[in-house]
Design a protein around this nucleic acid. Structure first.
Length: 466
RNA sequence: GGCGGCGUAGCCAAGGGGUAAGGCAAGGGUCUGCAAAACCCUCAUACACCGGUUCGACUCCGGUCGCCGCCUCCA
């Protein structure tokens, strides 16, 4: 079997993947900050992580997947100033921070479900793990990595020699480009808050007692506390978007490794960003589309998934409507292959998977998740002569990784056809029998106006919703 | 300003020192009363531009331009 190679940000090279324990893999993926809807750029990262998990499972690893929900403490500025995103969102919506978290968490999982992203085995909220976070901070305090300022407890990065190893950046280099320091109480510009005190005279919606005073945890500490709780330390794989490399993941590593004295995670994988029509994607650019925006335009969520599959996760994906059209058509054709095979009596349970084809597919996905190349294998296969059962068996096997829900495609899509359309169909068949094609075409146009396409087959006419 | 990535046909893209995967679109064909679907065929002397290394480069090196990112919240 082809060995699985993954690009490890830690070291910036492809490495052969080996789990820490037998064939079990602990995987932690940074989840959403639930203060707004996830846009398609966010979703791309979750699709990448889903592919990673599926590839691991395809390689017969038993994966334990943990994802956090950031529902407190993520500030609008990383200078440890600014406001908590949750509280801002709550104020803008006229709801409580808790309601906001609930609303956007549900919206997030609705999106991931529609994209056929497997749900993590453990989804953990930051607010449900306050004691664990406090305990971790205490551990750091006992080891002398922390200090107190007027607004919180901070991590002193100068005490952690490896700080910045993930980003390949040394502290001195960071300082060189740093902006004017806004918090004069910080010892080093890169120091970050572990615990923030509630502002004087302000009653926050989310705040807790702690040994240091009433307040809330810093953004990074939740991931350290929860990943250790559920996966132990070290664990196998930690992922997120590339933007997390220099700050969030760098700080997680500092906290976790300072506290436990061992490596946090063996492999760090990061998904590249999405750009739109060659331009930066952002709210101010007006191109930060939501999955709902695509659905409103008539696209299948899985067409978006297909689009993401067609670009390697470490390359920026240039989103264009034309490309999404192409993905939608390609996906539809793939489904058509499944339908035809089913209609031809194909039974996946009876089919055989060609070892050569499977080998090519596996070689692609095991080469740092080269799904675009794997799709090439799929198309080569699908367009070569196959018996229906073998074809189905192979496609459904590959779909364990692709996640395009091909197993849910059946020979016949049963659609409820209105009585009116049925009658027109009967009339049209009569006209065709009488070779009155002018009349038949006119009836077809009428049916089209009602929203259905007529397709003639040797077994009689079929209709398809437009 | 410092650091990094990318630039492959109309669009999305894989690849990698030995002569360009795949998908979409487009053109032609088989099938059909006509369509649709499916299937078959065609479709980059060429990989931003300019130099260099090499028997040979799109692939390596240097420079230029463009885009994206990080250093500062962001998947």
């Amino acid at each position: 079997m082809a060995t699985l190679k993954l690009f490890n940000t830690l070291g910036r090279r492809k490495e052969e993947f080996k789990p820490l324990y037998d064939n079990e893999v602990g995987m932690y993926t940074c989840g959403p900050t639930v203060y707004q809807y996830a846009h398609i750029g966010n979703l791309r990262t979750y699709i990448f992580e889903d592919i990673l998990r599926r590839v691991l499972e395809y390689n017969n690893y038993k994966v334990k997947h943990v994802m956090n929900i950031t529902d407190v403490g993520h500030l609008t500025s990383d200078a440890d100033e600014g406001e908590d995103k949750m509280e801002v969102g709550a104020r803008l919506a006229g709801k409580s921070a808790w309601e906001i978290a609930q609303l956007y968490t549900e919206a997030f999982f609705k999106d991931t479900e529609r994209l056929n992203i497997l749900k993590p085995h453990i989804v953990c909220k930051a607010t449900d793990h306050i004691p664990e976070q406090i305990a971790l901070i205490q551990k750091l305090e006992a080891k002398g990595f922390t200090y107190r300022t007027s607004d919180g407890i901070y991590f002193d990065v100068s005490k952690f020699p490896d700080y910045g190893k993930l980003a390949g950046q040394r502290l001195e280099e960071k300082e060189a480009g740093a902006r004017v320091e806004v918090n004069p109480e910080k010892r080093n510009p890169a120091d970050f808050a572990l615990w923030k005190f509630s502002p004087k005279g302000v009653k926050r919606q989310m705040e807790w007692d702690s040994p240091w005073g009433v307040g809330f945890p810093g953004w990074h500490i939740e991931c350290s506390a929860m990943s250790t709780k559920y996966l132990g330390q070290p664990f196998d794989i930690h992922c997120g978007g590339v933007d997390h490399i220099p700050i969030h993941h760098t700080n997680e590593i500092a906290q976790s490794e300072a506290a436990e004295g061992v490596k946090m995670a063996n492999f760090w994988l990061h998904g590249e960003f999405m750009i739109v029509e060659g331009r930066r994607m952002g709210k101010s650019e007006g191109n930060a589309y939501l999955l709902d925006d695509l659905i409103k335009r008539g696209y299948d969520p899985l067409a978006f998934r297909y689009l993401c599959l067609n670009t390697h996760y470490r390359i920026q994906l240039n989103f264009t409507w034309q490309a999404l059209d192409g993905a939608q058509t390609a996906l539809e054709r793939l489904r058509e292959h499944v339908r035809t095979a089913r209609a031809g009596g194909g039974d996946p349970a009876q089919g055989k998977i060609s070892p050569e084809v499977r080998e090519r597919f596996l070689a692609a996905i095991n080469d740092d998740l080269n799904v675009p190349q794997a799709l090439g294998v799929v198309w080569d296969f699908v367009r070569s002569p196959q018996n229906p059962s073998d074809k189905l068996a192979t496609l459904l096997d590959f779909d364990r990784v692709l996640g395009l829900r091909l197993s849910e495609v059946h020979a016949e899509e049963t659609v409820e056809v209105p009585q009116e359309v049925r009658e027109l169909l009967t009339q049209r068949e009569a006209a065709r029998k009488a070779k009155n094609f002018k009349e038949a075409d006119a009836l077809r146009a009428k049916i089209a106006q009602l929203g259905y396409d007529v397709i003639d087959t040797p077994q009689g006419p079929k209709v398809k919703r437009r």
